[in-house]
Amino acid sequence: MKHLKKKKKLLTNDTFVIVPFYNEGKVLINVIKKLKNSFKNIICVDDGSNNKNQIGKHKLGVFLIKHPINLGQGAALQTGINYAIKKKAKTIVTFDADGQHSAKDAIEMIKLLKKNDLDLVQGSRFYKKQNNNIPFIRKLILRVATIIANFFDNTQFTDTHNGLRVFNLNFAKKINIKNNRMSHPHDINKLVSKYNFKFSEYPTNIKYTHYSLSKGQKNLNAINILFDILISQLIKK
């Protein structure tokens, strides 16, 4: 009974989960179905996919936003955030569509955010030294990227490029993602030091499957991310 009550609390109208996706197939449907068990409001942002998504066919009861062209994950997240604010969301969750994240983690992160009155809870693969079976090269790149991002953003995150994060409305209103591509966490994380937001990290379980590794960021993409960060640091318009 207690479990059901807790679940009902999460099904409230003011929590929105944003799932940006691009050319996702069956995995996306499974991800949404799992999320639907715990969350009422799910915003799926189709970032100009070439294939026809299956969301309409399955009648999942999610908000579907479709970009006319592919703009990048950062842009898709910002669109989702804008829509969630419009819908009077009080808590927003960002969740990857490739099945890497766990809905249970998202629930725990919401609890942590509300319990400690935080502005942001960032998922982390390295917080409290977990073993996520992360491929060695990926682990190395993530570590280096985190050091660089922390240096530029004046933050102390242990994993800056984790797509699972929970934040409140105050934090959401300040988000203005200018890096449309994969370097968008830089635009989100820097707000913590800029506005002195209260934040915490939460150890997340990332499922590395063949699908998620092929769909997710390529290791070489780290160079693009680094370039984007440097450009955004150098050219502040």
Partner: peptide
């Protein structure tokens, strides 16, 4: 454009 065409599916 995307936000104008938002639908519930």
């Amino acid at each position: 454009l995307a936000l104008r065409k938002t639908s519930k599916k």
